[in-house]
Simulated assay, not measured.
Amino acid sequence: MASRWSLSWRERPAEEAALLNPAFCGELIARATKDYQRLRGNAFPLPLSFVVLPLILHAPTLAALPGRADTTFATWSAENEALLADLPERTLRLRPISREALLFLAQHSALTLGADGLRTGEKPLKLAAKPAASTRDVDDIRRAAALLGRWFANQGAPVQILQTMGVTP
């Protein structure tokens, strides 16, 4: 029996195909990468790219994210422990989608992957442009992706970030 992720896009449920398509998910990871790289001056750690989608595509977690990147990460994680309890499982479930998005970005030279992590590629996505047709929910998700990049840039080592959220690197 085929995995749901090995189905062609035409065979996937329409809602799933629309929300979890590689272009959109790749845009979200690219937004986090861009803001992380801008603030930190370093590549975005690859392991952190796998928690971007599980954090911002889960409506309750998205709603609980802070409004500012200078919010204390450990305090926020402790206050939102119940939301983060299933983050490891969500991360595993969305791992194929994250991989597909990363592959999409690499194939289009929007991101490059090096030993130190992800960097904006030769043909970066035009992230400042606001799409002509968008919804408030999608705009909130896009803003949250950039926020995660800035927030992660203000934290310690990636392993500490992941462990604080209960995800094993």
Rank of each mutant, 00 (worst) to 15 (best):
Q155S: 04
A153T: 00
A14I: 11
G149N: 11
K130C: 04
A128H: 09
L55W: 01
P158M: 02
L46Q: 06
P131N: 03
L62Q: 08
E11K: 11
T72P: 08
G67V: 09
A145S: 11
A146Y: 15
V159S: 07
R119G: 09
A146Q: 10
S109A: 12
T61E: 06
E122L: 04
W9H: 09
G26F: 14
W5M: 11
L147A: 03
A157E: 08
T61M: 15
F152N: 00
S77Q: 15
P66C: 11
W151D: 06
L48P: 13
V52W: 14
P54W: 04
A59G: 06
A32R: 09
A129D: 07
V51W: 05
L20K: 07
T168R: 08
A129T: 08
F73Q: 00
A17W: 14
Q163A: 02
L39Y: 07
D70I: 10
M165Q: 03
A145V: 06
G41E: 13
K123P: 01
R90Y: 02
E15W: 13
P131F: 09
H58L: 03
L102N: 02
G114I: 11
L103C: 03
R99A: 09
P124L: 06
I29P: 11
K130S: 12
L84G: 00
N42P: 15
A2R: 14
A153C: 12
I29F: 09
E27F: 05
S3M: 11
T75V: 09
E16G: 05
T75H: 13
L65V: 09
L92G: 05
A74Q: 13
F44M: 07
T112L: 12
K130I: 04
T71E: 12
F50W: 15
S77R: 12
V167W: 02
G114Q: 04
A17G: 04
V159Y: 06
N80H: 10
A133S: 09
T75D: 14
L48W: 04
N42H: 14
L87P: 00
H58I: 02
E27I: 04
P60G: 10
T33L: 06
R99Q: 02
S77Y: 04
P169H: 12
M1Y: 15
S109M: 08
L118K: 07
E122H: 08
G114A: 05
P47F: 00
E15C: 02
W9M: 14
G26I: 12
D139N: 13
A101I: 06
L127N: 12
A82L: 05
L127K: 01
D86E: 05
V159K: 07
W151H: 03
A78T: 10
P66E: 09
G121N: 08
